[in-house]
């Protein structure tokens, strides 16, 4: 990347606006996730909304911060760190939420009344697999 491309002020401005827009979208995503945490009926649905919306919210916010931090393209080193952060979030967020969900299941926290099927319980009853245990 040659620094000359971004010397014109209006291109800088476009990047700033783009960063701001991404930041706002990320915050909205996180807001929706927190509304979901209140509205959902049981712990399983809460974990669902919490994971998905907060993953995208964090990704968008980080991208926005990365773009806003660009002042001189050749010297800015935030964007690479932001990419690493995003990769780590994509890898670790589902794993930690899966552990939460599984722990809830092991502790036999009840499902909401609307729940249609529970194949895991059926298979435990039919001795297809052992009951998941606290490890």
């Amino acid at each position: 990347m040659s620094p000359d491309i971004f010397k014109e002020g209006f291109r800088m401005e476009i990047i700033q606006y783009l960063g701001g827009a991404l930041l706002i979208m990320g915050s909205l995503s996180l807001l929706i996730a927190s509304i979901g945490l209140i509205r959902m009926p049981d712990v399983y649905n809460r974990v669902q909304t919490g994971t998905k919306a907060s993953t995208l919210g964090a990704i968008l916010s980080f991208l926005g911060i990365g773009l806003l931090s660009i002042e001189n393209w050749s010297e800015s080193n935030w964007i690479g760190r932001v990419i690493i952060l995003i990769i780590f979030i994509i890898i670790t967020n589902p794993v930690s939420s899966h552990i939460l969900m599984r722990a809830a299941y092991v502790m036999k926290i009840p499902f909401t009344k609307d729940t249609k099927v529970d194949k895991l319980k059926e298979d435990i009853d039919n001795k297809v697999l052992e009951e998941p245990k606290d490890e």
Binding site: I32, G36, M40, Q48, T49
Partner: peptide
């Protein structure tokens, strides 16, 4: 996924139909 979840959270009737499938 996010558009889908957003729709469900913001709709007043909370259209969910949860369950565990294999």
């Amino acid at each position: 996924a996010n558009i889908d979840v957003t729709k469900r959270i913001l709709s007043p009737t909370l259209p969910i139909n949860p369950g565990v499938v294999k």
